[in-house]
Write a protein that binds this DNA or RNA. Structure first.
Lengths: 230, 230
DNA sequence: ATTTTATACTGATTTACATCATGATATTTA
DNA sequence: TAAATATCATGATGTAAATCAGTATAAAAT
């Protein structure tokens, strides 16, 4: 990670936008910005906690591994989003890994400063609390899905989530460049199974492909796959 | 749920213990206490949010279902713990269900009062923030486990978590009366599979049974099952 | 006390999904 | 621009865990 300067920092910075304006100089004094390239690891699970990170631009995957070669992507952090905040009040090591999947710029402030920020900016703390409660709802839904929902439904849900977070290109494709392996890891399944499921969804006219890009052709039906029967 | 009065309320109440003492009269004025019996449903996923709940005594399971008959237990709330807090900043319906598995007394305050409490008691909000971050780490670990860890490891981890939360009886058994079905739902597997796995663990001398009660005979080896090879 | 209902137990069978194997395209690096 | 390395594609095979199908036992309700 290479240190860089950002222009117009107050406008793009997650902390600046959500804290008291009197606190901004303190933020700018503590914040460090880094350029990350595609595939670059920002931190790994087990690493000592440096601080809390923010995405200025680019996309970061938050993931957790099992064994040598099994990983699960928990979420994607994109422009304006925070990551690494699960380390709050923890045991001093990251419980998850963070890896850039699109080159960009990330910032971080050390844990101590972040904790002070929370104590000084009670409104920000309140907002973060709401955000964590939301994160928890998403996480618990995912746990339930991986436990009981078939892969087809999980892939459908993954695609809908990606569409919601990254939107569509002009020609209607989900606006993220994601490897099939990452889509599989995000769905909690293997590459091969996800590959087959996508083919099924295409032959059922729920999806359309254009190279790696995916377009949702029938949102209604795709969405129905994420609902249970009961 | 039958409304009841609790004696010595300030001593046992989660809110009273964590808020400004000046705020305690407000809490007592808003808090409602209910007696729940074993098996009683406190709220179901999809129900409109009433408020945030606390366990005075007894045990409450927090769970989420899929289809007609598949459920996953996310956590157990016991004495002094909060539940229903995932509803914070949500869409007004519970994302999870809460059911008493041991009779006891639960309290609740309505959402509006809870939100005011958070704004007035910034220390409490900070503590809750740390708690939510912890919840998130646990939840994401569970997601990873269900996705990649074999059932044997998940059962081992479930038993260790139960031991940590509920402790041991005098004769060394995990101090919770839990149906096999609930243990299975907590492990994210079926009754039959968990049953077989437990038998395996017994024949490997990692567990000892006494009726429904379970004792961990070899913590080291059991713990090893929850670690990955890499 | 006796019917009803829930929980526990266990073998046989099925299946969804992972794993393995192998070739074809891309994409990156030298 | 060639060599090396990812990513993509697809069939064949294996297996962990779910489902199914019963009996047994315990707890609740009448």
């Amino acid at each position: 990670m290479k240190k860089v300067a950002i222009i117009d920092e107050e406008k793009t910075c997650f902390l600046c936008k959500n804290c008291l304006k009197e606190w901004i100089p303190a933020i700018l004094a503590h914040k460090k910005n880094y350029k990350v390239k595609k595939g670059e690891i920002i931190f790994k699970e087990g690493d000592p906690v440096k601080g809390i990170f923010f995405v200025n631009n680019g996309i970061v995957k938050v993931h957790k591994r099992w064994g040598a070669d099994k990983e699960l992507i928990l979420r994607f952090a994109s422009e304006g989003m925070v990551f690494g905040h699960r380390a709050l009040g923890g045991d001093g090591v990251y419980s998850i890994s963070a890896t850039a999947i699109q080159a960009g710029i990330v910032s971080y402030v050390d844990m101590e400063f972040f904790e002070t920020t929370l104590k000084v900016n009670t409104d920000f703390a309140y907002k973060l609390l709401m955000f964590l409660a939301y994160d928890l709802r998403v996480s618990e839904r995912k746990t339930r899905n991986v436990a009981h929902m078939p892969v087809k439904g999980r892939v459908a849900e993954a695609l809908i989530m990606l569409k919601d977070q990254f939107g569509l290109t002009d020609d209607g494709y989900i606006n993220i460049e994601l490897s099939r392996q990452d889509l599989a890891s995000f769905s909690g399944a293997t590459y091969e199974t996800v590959f087959r499921v996508i083919n099924e969804l295409i032959s059922e006219n729920l999806l359309v492909l254009s190279g790696k890009r995916i377009s949702i052709a029938n949102f209604e039906k795709l969405s129905k796959l994420t609902e249970d029967a009961a």
